[in-house]
Amino acid sequence: MLTKRIIPCLDIKDNRTVKGVNFLDLRDAGDPVELASRYAKYGADELVFLDITATHEKRKTLAELVLKVAQQIDIPFTVGGGISSIEDVSVLLQNGADKVSINSAVVKNPPLINDLVDRFGSQCIVVAVDAKKIEDQWKVHLVGGKVPTPVDLFEWVSEATDRGAGEILFTSMNHDGTKAGFANEALATMSKLINIPIIASGGAGNIHHFIEVFKKGKADAALAASVFHYKEIPIGYLKEKLSEKGIPIRLVTKETIQRSIK
């Protein structure tokens, strides 16, 4: 049976992880590669690297980071942040990224989804959507959720799906940073509407929130940052709890971890 995925997200600025991380046993908590390998060993199913510098000059250093990650990480990873062209995507995939996530650029220019899918295949094109519920209407926002648009969330994800997107990464601006749970109602609506996997983001605060996002929100994957970085929720423990609740999940046994850590 296909399992639900748990995805830690690493915010990257100038090739360093930004959000504070309190893994005492890391030599360098700001080193994305070391943090990523730790997550991979303890059972993360995938990783997302979100480049929040994402200026033109920094593109090259992001590509170098992607290469280092690909050399050391043995689970799939997605790279996002400021990607706006076929060339951007091409460099990241060539350097070993499994998928790229694209946000503002495809809202401004939807046919770019088709172009990317034709060139690289659906499997590596994740359309990221930031949206906010305003007066009962979910509206797509740009630039990390700062700039509102008149675009309806559900219409947009349907269009992105029709244009060939492989997955949707949906962040609720109403829930992001609140640690009060995911946007389960909107997620469930979306899940009925589209037939591609949905990654839920924004609002993870405790284990119960993860149970709810899979049971009520019908999400295929759940993404979170701070609860993992600050070790509030250890990934292995979270996965055990989800499994106890009957949610299909890939468990990584202590035995396996011991075997692989030299």
Binding site: M1, L2, T3, I75, G166, N195, I196, D220
Partner: peptide, 28 residues
């Protein structure tokens, strides 16, 4: 949902390629 994206295990495996791998192991 199509594509299938993620980790799935096996109902059964056989042969040398799966030496010491149990059906309960997951692949992406």
């Amino acid at each position: 949902k199509v594509p299938q994206i993620g980790w799935n295990h096996f109902d059964w495996v056989k042969g040398d390629l799966f030496q010491s791998l149990k059906p309960t192991e997951y692949m992406y």
